[in-house]
């Protein structure tokens, strides 16, 4: 079905890209307008470009602190979750253990559980451990919530690695741990990396746990912090648009750098070749 792309095709594509990007374009154009113009005109371009919204966004709320919190929480989550998940995925795809089906079923089922159904016991648990308003309070639930996705993805990736390599390693007297470290891991590295990106993005975007567990402003993550950017009487759209631009930049960078990996990760679970 590979037809030649004509002019009309490129016009369609251009319209599509414009429509998906429109919210970002408008938010960016708003962020460089003076506050007065935001509330009085619908002109696309301003003649008085200003950075005042950016200054105000960074000073009215600890935006950089929010980003740092998100970064720390997501990084720890990614490291631990991918580590644990790659061990589990290796055991499931390579080692002669029983109840594999049961384990994978449990994993898949727990991915489908609604988070609101576990939020109150988790809230009580984290409170009683004294972990509210800390990184640990978010990392524990995040690791667990991202484990199903990570185990599932990594199992798919590990399955694609030919078993002959390991068998020859085994014949040469390598222990399972050595086989895992020297053979499987390097071969699986692209898959592990893809999984890590997806886990990181999922942790970066999580909202419900962050909203309930870290309620102090100092400990908020980006999604919650940005959603709370409102004073009591007016909504400071200038600040919000500027903050949105700032927090979207790292995501755009990640997407630009790793687009192919992300797509392969997103589609590997659902499409059986």
């Amino acid at each position: 079905m590979n037809k030649k792309a004509g002019i009309s095709f490129y016009i369609t594509i251009a319209i599509f890209i414009f429509l998906t990007m429109f919210p970002f374009i408008w938010v960016f154009l708003t962020s460089i307008k003076p506050t007065k113009e935001i509330f009085s005109s619908f002109d696309w371009f301003t003649s008085n470009v200003t950075m005042s919204s950016y200054k105000s966004a960074l000073t009215s709320q600890p935006l950089l602190k929010y980003m740092w919190n998100s970064f720390v929480v997501s990084s720890i989550t990614t490291l631990v979750a991918v580590g644990l998940a790659s061990m589990s995925a290796y055991a499931v795809t390579r080692l002669p253990i029983r109840f594999k089906g049961l384990f994978l079923g449990l994993v898949l089922a727990s991915a489908m559980f609604p988070q609101v159904a576990i939020i109150s016991p988790i809230y009580n648990l984290i409170s009683s451990l004294g972990l509210r308003n800390s990184y640990g309070g978010l990392v524990i639930p995040y690791i667990t919530v991202s484990l199903p996705l990570a185990i599932w993805l990594l199992s798919t990736f590990f399955q694609k690695i030919p078993t002959q390599l390991e068998e020859s390693a085994k014949l040469d007297g390598a222990t399972p741990l050595q086989t895992y470290r020297k053979i499987i891991f390097p071969l699986a590295a692209p898959g592990v990396f893809t999984t890590a990106i997806l886990v990181f993005i999922a942790a970066w975007n999580e909202f419900l746990f962050a909203l309930t567990i870290n309620t102090e402003n100092e400990w908020r993550t980006i999604p919650v912090g940005l959603a709370m950017y409102q004073s009591e009487f007016t909504v400071p759209w200038g600040d919000i648009t500027a903050a949105t631009v700032i927090v979207t930049i790292p995501i755009v960078v990640i997407v630009l750098l790793f687009q192919k990996r992300i797509v392969s990760g997103l589609t590997s679970g659902s499409v059986k070749g």
Partner: peptide, 30 residues
């Protein structure tokens, strides 16, 4: 529509991935 060979596939891929990648709360605010 996009299941064919054309110039600028990368651009389409990026414009498709960014809405997916940003936090839902940020999208909702926008």
């Amino acid at each position: 529509i996009i299941n064919r060979v054309f110039h600028g596939r990368g651009l389409v891929r990026v414009s498709v991935l960014i809405p997916w990648a940003i936090p839902t709360a940020v999208a909702a605010m926008m």
